[in-house]
Design a protein around this nucleic acid. Sequence first.
RNA 1: UGACCCAUGGUGUAAUUGGCAACACGACUGAUUUUGGUUCAGUAGAGUCUAGGUUCGAGCCCUAGUGGGUCAACCA
Length: 559
Amino acid sequence: MSTEKGPNFLEEVVSEDVKNGKHGGRVLTRFPPEPNGYLHIGHSKSICLNFGLAKQFGGKTNLRFDDTNPETEETEYVESIKEDIKWLGFTWANEFYASDYFDKLYEFAVTLIKKQLAYVDDSTAEQIAASKGTPTEPGKDSPFRNRNVEENLDLFERMRKGEFKDGEKVLRAKVDMASPNMYLRDPLMYRIKHVAHHRTKDKWCIYPMYDFAHGQSDSIEEITHSICTLEFEVHRPLYEWFIEKLGIFPSHQYEFARLNLNYTVMSKRKLLQLVNEKHVSGWDDPRMPTICGLRRRGYTPESIRDFCDVIGVARRENIIDVELLEHCVRKDLNKISNRVMVVMDPVKVIIDNYPEGKTEMLPAENNPETGENGGTREIPFSKEIFIERGDFMEVPVKKYFRLGPGLMVRLKHAYILKCESFKKDEKGNITEIHCTYFPESKSGSDTSGISVKGTIHWVSAAQAVSVEVRLYDRLFKVENPQAEEGDFKSYLNEKSLEIITTALAEPCLKNAKPLDKFQFIRKGYFCVDKDSTSGEIIFNRTVALKDGWSKEQQKKSIS
RNA sequence: UGACCCAUGGUGUAAUUGGCAACACGACUGAUUUUGGUUCAGUAGAGUCUAGGUUCGAGCCCUAGUGGGUCAACCA
């Protein structure tokens, strides 16, 4: 998958380390999600990076749940995260949990207390915040900063035993209250939370903070390259401080710029809001940038991996155009999906010179990209068919290669048709189009000598299957919702979902199963939704086909 | 008024680590096509945020400025 591009900065670091025999040339990365939400496309960048880097250099990757905050974490999320990573095509070496290390972490804390590098603070959250100072002013030492080792040990022990209420005491590292780095101003290591944990249940009532869990977990697992996003850069000095003071395995942290996509939001908090407030149907709503949402929408793991590869990695803020993501799915789907015909907005066509009651089966190639290997199927053709309303124009514009009075088009896989007349209702809607066909123009054995510019899709009226089609558009109306004034939800695109109930499909689609993918000829790529029943099949539009003609028309109407 | 990070076509990443800027997406031409899709051929578009400096030579190094980002949760 790698292009002629040079290595990214992470590949440079790792290859340099391997070359120099650092850690014996061993590479071990980790993907460390917190099980408090579903994974999204941004995480897939991190997943591809962590697993990809390890694989590239002969190493392995651990999956480690960063579960140090029992209030927000749930097993439901653990399961969904594992499912999504597997679906993306990655296999972890070990499944670990930060909570696996709670005993070890406790020991580490005791070690630090004994070294007079940690102390129990009785201050309230407000007092601690107030004495922390600001980025431009130094903080003040806590009055409890110089408690002796014995007292600290005793107090910490009693914190663990549950002798204190939530918030009554915390354990802090004794670093430097005047540091320009706020994270070094005696950061909290442990807080009291009388809350059951999704795995350790009620064994603990004190839980380590991120900074006293993540780096230590990395170290315990002997992670060689701990890759995270840029906002953790300021944590790195603390990450290193703990490792140094504890004298444990020296994992190293590297930061990269997270993925941002336009016309969507990527923060778990905001996505959760969309779910809770029912702006979307759930985490897997096909409009969501979540992995399960993209999966339901019809994205393939290959396309997402390709996307993550093509966007590159750097340390600069970026907003990627969703069109690039769409390009990646089209590229993959074009290769693998069978072509079928579905008419979304049908209008009836009667072929006057076609025998009444006759039905002939016409062979249709499944996928021109795979040619003969893709196989063929048969589709019924008869006197009455439906075509797309948009494929007929009463007064055709110039260069309109479809149907109109006196115009000819080819029916895909079938015959050439000539429009003879049409009927309208009182409101001016076309109700019926009358055509004649050329018997000798049959697809594959055309001896008519007629050449037409356009080919349109169609379905035979008698055998057509009614299906529901859901068309999705971008979730937000603006490129960067979170950068706009006010509530990001006020920029939601109210037209992000259009449900079509009039669509008619060719008969073979009757047997389609959820997640089956197709290209609806001339329309786009579609995927069977899980809401489908035996009575009605529902299709999600993954992405539309590029449409140069309508784009041109739009430009003309603007100018 | 602080510390740290970042700055290359519209977007995103490259540039043999100092040798006159490339790739992908997008845009535009044209060819092919029983999908106005795909494919193919080609074109335009940045002189690398600004100002100095070092050097025979700077997108790469130095200084200052400008712009953007991050940091004051008992979240991760």
